[in-house]
């Protein structure tokens, strides 16, 4: 992925920052460009890992509830679990 695309996709910067950085990025020295890319990569990796871990924890407890429920309840609980998970996906996108 190109640096410009990384700048657009990252949650590190605000929209205003992204516009300013994208407009100026071609004027940066190569050392700064490399460092910027490293900073974005590192932040995005930590962010994505932390979000995944959060979702995993919630998914595990929901899954546990569904499998430990009676057969009669499982369908309804699975639907409830899916709703919670899809909601979290949207909140944490």
């Amino acid at each position: 992925m190109s640096l410009k695309q990384k700048i657009k996709d990252t949650t590190l910067f605000t929209d205003e920052d992204k516009i300013a950085i994208l407009a100026a990025v071609d004027t940066y020295a190569s050392a700064d460009i490399k460092a910027l890319e490293g900073i974005i990569d590192e932040f995005d990796m930590v962010h994505s890992k932390a979000v995944s871990e959060y979702k995993k924890s919630v998914s595990e407890v929901l899954h546990d509830i569904v499998i430990k429920s009676s057969l009669a309840d499982q369908k309804k609980l699975q639907r409830a679990a899916s709703l919670v998970q899809s909601g979290l996906d949207e909140l944490l996108q």
């Binding site: 609980l77 639907r79 709703l83 909601g87």
Partner: peptide, 12 residues
């Protein structure tokens, strides 16, 4: 997203 989380938890 919040509505889905809330509805899902209520349906739980």
């Amino acid at each position: 997203g919040l509505r889905n989380v809330m509805t899902g938890l209520r349906e739980l």
